[in-house]
Design a protein around this nucleic acid. Structure first.
Length: 331
DNA sequence: AAATGTGGCAACCGCCTGCTA
DNA sequence: TTAGCAGGCGGTTGCCACATT
């Protein structure tokens, strides 16, 4: 037969732990070690369920727990790992020493998730959500710089590129219904994109820029050429650079995953840029591969403010291409 | 100064998986 | 073999502190 019940729930205390209870739990575990949570409360003299004791220990009392604000690196790691693992908080926590799954989960729900939403990124799929962005300015012809959208931006975020090519492919098929369907699939049928004039403008721009449809970007020679050019840029400035490129600047973004501590990570990257326009602001990546490059992010690593982080992502759709880039080759 | 709103976070709930008797 | 439990996990709740009106 199975084991006896973990604990009798009747008469057991619930709610916040008192310092006395914490001390009892700590002293008991220091003597006997964690584990056997079923008998622990009784042996430790606690009127608590074993489950409650385990949670209190693992989430709060454990000596190796790191308290305080999440660092920029930690935050970026969470985003990266979440894009791969989803809501597997324990798996994410396993890669962030000193942080608990509960803490990461709370931080995600209260900070990161909201920020991603505000910046037009679906926190579930990690894909751009155009229905969450104010694209009115993007579709304004006087400001619509598609080369930005489809150039570095597309490289930095394959989802944008994918969406754009999907639109163009549908349009090329001269099938308005299919186009509408694609738009719906991409959650574009909202206030910003209901105006198909805007879509037509997007399509027109796409065609003008001769996007190579149905060709994986990494297979395009222009991609490698551009990639190499970027890597040769010393201290590539971050002025108005999209957030999705912050921690892994232009390297292997498109359809190219990379390894981090043996963990497969996705091409997307939603790090942060420094919002100030100082030419000194530069990147630093968590990615081991790029950490050796000339990218540093000292101003932000020091402790970026919330505004800095948000402004960085707000620059998703507006950035300037460094003059040293020979962008004509790419286009 | 008081009332109300909001955000953050610790803790609980309930389900799932693997283990054990 | 399998019923049933322990432990693990993700989702949710509710309290508290702080901000705003």
């Amino acid at each position: 037969m199975g084991r006896s019940p973990c604990c009798d729930k009747n008469g057991l205390k619930k709610g916040p732990w008192t310092p006395e209870e914490d001390n009892k739990l700590i002293q008991y575990i220091e003597l006997h070690g964690p584990g056997n949570w079923r008998t622990l409360p009784k042996n430790a003299g606690l009127q608590r369920c074993g489950k409650s004791c385990r949670l209190r220990w693992t989430n709060y009392l454990r000596p190796d727990i790191k308290r305080g604000r999440f660092s920029f690196e930690e935050e970026e790691s969470i985003i990266q790992l979440h894009s791969v693992l989803g809501n597997k908080w324990s798996a994410i926590a396993a890669r962030l020493p000193g942080r608990t799954d509960n803490e990461i989960k709370n931080y995600w729900n209260t900070h990161i998730r909201k920020r991603l939403l505000r910046n037009g990124i679906d926190p579930v799929t990690h894909s751009p959500r155009f229905d969450l962005l104010d694209l009115s300015s993007l579709l304004n012809s006087t400001q619509f710089n598609l080369s930005s959208l489809l150039g570095l931006q597309a490289l930095a975020n394959p989802e944008v590129f994918r969406l754009a090519t999907t639109l163009l492919a549908s349009h090329n098929e001269s099938n308005p219904e299919l186009l509408l369907q694609k738009l719906q699939e991409n959650q574009l049928l909202n206030s910003q994109f209901q105006n198909l004039e805007g879509s037509d403008l997007l399509l027109q721009k796409l065609q003008q820029n001769q996007i190579l449809l149905n060709t994986p970007l990494q297979n395009q020679p222009q991609f490698y050429q551009l990639q190499n050019q970027i890597q040769e840029i010393p201290n590539f400035t971050t002025q108005n650079v999209p957030c999705s490129s912050a921690s892994q600047p232009m390297q292997g973004h498109v359809e190219e995953s990379y390894l981090m501590n043996g963990q497969m990570l996705p091409p997307q990257n939603y790090g942060y840029c420094n919002s100030d326009t100082s030419d000194n602001s530069t990147f630093q990546s968590l990615n081991n591969n790029s950490s050796n490059q000339n990218f540093s992010y000292d101003s932000v690593l020091s402790t970026p403010t919330e505004d800095e982080k948000e402004t960085f992502c707000s620059n998703l759709m507006k950035f300037e291409i460094p003059e040293s880039l020979n962008f004509d080759d790419f286009m």
